[in-house]
Amino acid sequence: MYIVRDIFHLQFGHYRDAKTLLESAKDQKLLPPDAKEVRILSDFTGDAYRLIFEQGYETLNDYEKSMQAGMGGDEWKKWYEEFKKHVISSHREILKLVF
């Protein structure tokens, strides 16, 4: 199994707006429906003002298919344009679950 983490560093004071947009994405079913598990996390310690999207996939091919299907839709593109207004930077980690 692979764990994909997209880590977004938010602008100061933008957490509530970004969280509201995430709730909207969840309601609109824009989050990856084919991931084995999906979690959205917020920082508790460490770098401040982060949102972390964590998704689990059996294979990297499953992840790639999910990205193509999800990011290709007009609704997702519209949502993402609004979301990225709150982001300073981001990065992605892809981890392999050992046991």
Rank of each mutant, 00 (worst) to 15 (best):
residue 97 L to Y: 08
residue 73 G to Q: 15
residue 58 E to R: 06
residue 54 E to R: 10
residue 67 M to A: 10
residue 16 R to M: 07
residue 23 E to Y: 06
residue 81 E to N: 13
residue 38 V to M: 06
residue 9 H to E: 11
residue 72 G to Y: 04
residue 71 M to D: 08
residue 71 M to S: 12
residue 17 D to G: 12
residue 4 V to Y: 07
residue 16 R to H: 03
residue 26 K to N: 04
residue 86 H to S: 12
residue 18 A to W: 03
residue 56 G to L: 05
residue 17 D to P: 04
residue 52 I to W: 00
residue 29 K to F: 11
residue 94 I to F: 06
residue 21 L to H: 00
residue 34 D to S: 07
residue 3 I to Y: 01
residue 72 G to T: 08
residue 51 L to A: 07
residue 12 F to S: 07
residue 56 G to R: 05
residue 69 A to H: 09
residue 10 L to V: 03
residue 67 M to D: 01
residue 70 G to Y: 03
residue 85 K to G: 06
residue 55 Q to E: 13
residue 90 S to G: 14
residue 22 L to N: 02
residue 5 R to D: 00
residue 49 Y to T: 08
residue 50 R to T: 15
residue 38 V to F: 02
residue 35 A to H: 00
residue 32 P to W: 01
residue 6 D to K: 10
residue 98 V to A: 15
residue 95 L to T: 11
residue 71 M to L: 14
residue 69 A to K: 15
residue 35 A to S: 04
residue 25 A to V: 05
residue 80 Y to S: 12
residue 31 L to S: 01
residue 65 K to G: 08
residue 92 R to V: 10
residue 43 D to V: 01
residue 74 D to R: 14
residue 36 K to S: 11
residue 2 Y to R: 03
residue 38 V to P: 00
residue 3 I to F: 02
residue 65 K to N: 11
residue 82 E to S: 14
residue 20 T to D: 03
residue 47 D to I: 15
residue 31 L to Q: 01
residue 25 A to Q: 01
residue 87 V to T: 06
residue 63 Y to S: 04
residue 8 F to K: 02
residue 18 A to L: 06
residue 75 E to M: 12
residue 63 Y to V: 01
residue 51 L to S: 03
residue 2 Y to Q: 07
residue 95 L to N: 13
residue 32 P to T: 06
residue 12 F to D: 12
residue 28 Q to V: 02
residue 67 M to K: 09
residue 94 I to N: 05
residue 57 Y to W: 13
residue 60 L to N: 11
residue 77 K to I: 07
residue 84 K to S: 15
residue 86 H to R: 12
residue 57 Y to L: 09
residue 29 K to S: 14
residue 29 K to L: 09
residue 2 Y to M: 05
residue 61 N to V: 13
residue 62 D to N: 14
residue 38 V to G: 04
residue 97 L to V: 15
residue 93 E to Q: 10
residue 20 T to P: 00
residue 3 I to C: 08
residue 26 K to A: 08
residue 75 E to W: 04
residue 90 S to L: 10
residue 25 A to H: 00
residue 33 P to H: 05
residue 19 K to T: 03
residue 8 F to H: 01
residue 93 E to I: 09
residue 52 I to A: 02
residue 16 R to Y: 04
residue 95 L to E: 15
residue 31 L to M: 06
residue 34 D to T: 07
residue 59 T to S: 15
residue 11 Q to P: 00
residue 28 Q to E: 11
residue 97 L to D: 12
residue 71 M to W: 06
residue 90 S to P: 05
residue 49 Y to P: 00
residue 55 Q to H: 11
residue 85 K to Y: 02
residue 50 R to D: 11
residue 3 I to K: 09
residue 93 E to G: 08
residue 95 L to V: 13
residue 90 S to K: 08
residue 73 G to E: 14
residue 56 G to H: 05
residue 8 F to I: 04
residue 11 Q to N: 09
residue 10 L to D: 00
residue 45 T to K: 12
residue 96 K to Q: 15
residue 89 S to R: 13
residue 52 I to Y: 00
residue 37 E to A: 13
residue 61 N to M: 13
residue 73 G to C: 12
residue 56 G to N: 03
residue 89 S to Y: 09
residue 27 D to I: 13
